[in-house]
Design a binder for these strands. Sequence first.
DNA 1: CTGAAAGCGCTTACAG
DNA 2: CTGAAAGCGCTTACAG
Lengths: 326, 326
Amino acid sequence: MKDVAARAGVGLKTVSRVVNGEPGVTPDTVQRVQSAIEALGFRRNDSARVLRKGRTASVGLVLEDLADPFYSSLSRAVEEVARDHGSLLFTGSSAEDPEREQELALAFCARRVDGLVIVPASQDHRYLQPEIAAGIAAVFVDRPAEQLEADAVLTDNAGGVREGVTHLIRQGHRRIAFIGDQRRIHTAGERLRGYRETMADAGLPVDESWVSMGPTAAERVQAEVTRMLQGPEPVTAVFAGNNRVSVTALRVLVNQPRPVALVGFDDFELADLLSPAVTVVAQDPARLGRTAAQLLFRRLEGETGPPQRLELSGRLIVRGSGEVAG
Amino acid sequence: MKDVAARAGVGLKTVSRVVNGEPGVTPDTVQRVQSAIEALGFRRNDSARVLRKGRTASVGLVLEDLADPFYSSLSRAVEEVARDHGSLLFTGSSAEDPEREQELALAFCARRVDGLVIVPASQDHRYLQPEIAAGIAAVFVDRPAEQLEADAVLTDNAGGVREGVTHLIRQGHRRIAFIGDQRRIHTAGERLRGYRETMADAGLPVDESWVSMGPTAAERVQAEVTRMLQGPEPVTAVFAGNNRVSVTALRVLVNQPRPVALVGFDDFELADLLSPAVTVVAQDPARLGRTAAQLLFRRLEGETGPPQRLELSGRLIVRGSGEVAG
DNA sequence: CTGAAAGCGCTTACAG
DNA sequence: CTGAAAGCGCTTACAG
C-alpha cells in the first residue's frame, strides 16, 4: 500500500480510500492510484484490516462430520446465510471427539471469528465462557450446549419419535424395538425418552431387551436387530434412532422371512426407492443450519436478551416400511 | 498482551515467549505471566500474529456444492489433511457459478490463505495469476484449471466410462444411451469422449438421439430417458454420466415393462440396496481430496517443479443393473 | 479533496 | 534469562 502511494504520488490514506471505494477522491487521483495498484499487483491484506477494525467477517462452524449428508446440508445452509452477510466460513469436523471440538472452536476464536455455530460433541462448554465474554457470539445447533447458557436451535426429537412410534402402534404393533445412538449424545437421549413416553402413554410395557443404545457402527446395529428378531416373542417393528441405524436395520430386515415394520429418524436420499420404501420422521437439516446462522447474525447485529432455544418439529413421511401390519 | 506484561511486571517479549512456549524464561516468571493471563482472560490474537509471520496456517476450499455427498466426502478429506498440517479450512460453494468461484477464491486470498484447493466452475482461471505470483499455492481437483498451468488431481473420466460401456457391450447391448451433464463441464466432456471412443472401437454406430447432455435436473433427465425408450428401436441400456443422473434414470427404468440395463458414473449410498442394485463406475472422492491437499502442502513446503496432473482411476462395481442382458 | 501521525496486537532482530 | 525498539499493513481520528 505504501508502494502504491509512492508510485501514485499520493498519501497512504488516499490509497485506502480508493481501495475501499470511499468517496471524496478526484476521479483523476482514483485513476492514478488504480494504475499504480495494477502495475504493482497490489492485493489488500485483510489480516491487517481485521487488526484495525473489530470484525473479521468470518464465522466458524464446528460439526460432527462434514461428510455426513445430514451435516453437509446443514453446513451448506450456514454457508449461504454467512454469504448473505458478507462473511466467510471456517469449517471443522469434531468426529464426535470433545477435545477436537474444543481445539477447533478455540482455534477459530484465536482467528477472531465474529461468531461460532457448533454441533456439540463436548459435555462441557464452559471453555467458551471467556470467548463469549470477549464478544464472540455462539449458537449451538442440533444439540444444546452443556453447562453453558447459550442460544440453541434443535429439532423436537422426543416429539418426532412420538409421532413415529404412535404410527407404529396404530398399525397394531405392541413389541417395538428402539435402536439408538450413544446415550451421552443429547439427541439420542431425547429420542429414547420420546419412545418410552409414547409406549407408556399407550399403556404398553417395554421389555428392556427391545432397547439398545450405542455406537451406530453397522456391526453393532446388525447384531442387535438380529437378536431382537429371535426368540418366541420377537419384536414386530423397529424404530431406528437415526439414518445410519435405519440403513443397517433395513439390510437385516430385507432378509427376514416375515415382514417387520421400520420407521427411521432422519430422512435420507433414495429412501423412497427402496423396497419397501422407508417411512421416516424427517428433520430439516438445511433449516436447522439456516435458523442457527440467522440467529447468530442477529446476535452479531446487536440483538441482546436471554439465550434462546428454538425447536423445529420433525415430520412423519409415510412410504411403506412403517405400514407393515403388526 | 501489553496489559498482561504490565500486570506480571515483565516485558512484552517475555509474555510472547510464554504464550508461544518458547524456552529461556525462568519457571518463576512463567508462573507470574500465566497468572496474569488467566486473571485478565487474555487470548492471543492470531490476526496480529499472521500479520508479522508469513503464513496464516489456513487454506481455502472452493467447490461446487458442500451439500453434495461427492463433494462433502472430498471436503472432509481435505480437512483431515489440513488438520494434520496444523491448518484451518475455509470452505465455500460456487454453485457452478464462475463469478461466485472467483469471488470466493479471491476473498480467501485476501485473507492470505496459504493455499487453495479448487473444484473449478470457471472457464478462465487467469484471475488467479497475481495471487499465485504472490505466493499462494493452488491445486485444482476433479476438474483442471482453464487457461492456467496449475496442479490438478483428476479421475480418469474417459477411462472409467470406457470400462462401464465395455461392460454393457459385453452383455450384448448395441443401442446404449449416454446421458451427461452440461457440455462445458470438463468431466462431462471427458465422459462423453469415453463413450464415443468405446462405441467406435467396438465398431458400433452411435445414433445421436441416444446422446443427451445438459443440466442434471430431474425433469430433463426423466424426459430424455423416457424419450430414448420409445420408438421402434429403443435403447436397451443407459450409461448415466453422474450420480444425479443415475438416480433419476433409475426412477424411470423401474417403471418400464421390459428390463433396461443401467451403469452409472459415481457410486452412491444405498446403490447396493436398490432393486436391481446399481452397477457403477466408482470414483473415490475422499482420495481425490486427500491427494489434492497433500500436493498442496508439498508445494507449501517448498516443492517446486512444473505443474503436476495426477489421475486416479475409476473402478467398476458390478451389482446387477448393468448385467441385464441386451 | 488530501495527508501525516498514531495505533491495532503481535513478532523479529538486537542488545544487555 | 529479559526487554525496548521497530515494524507487519492496514484504518481511525484529526488537521489542513
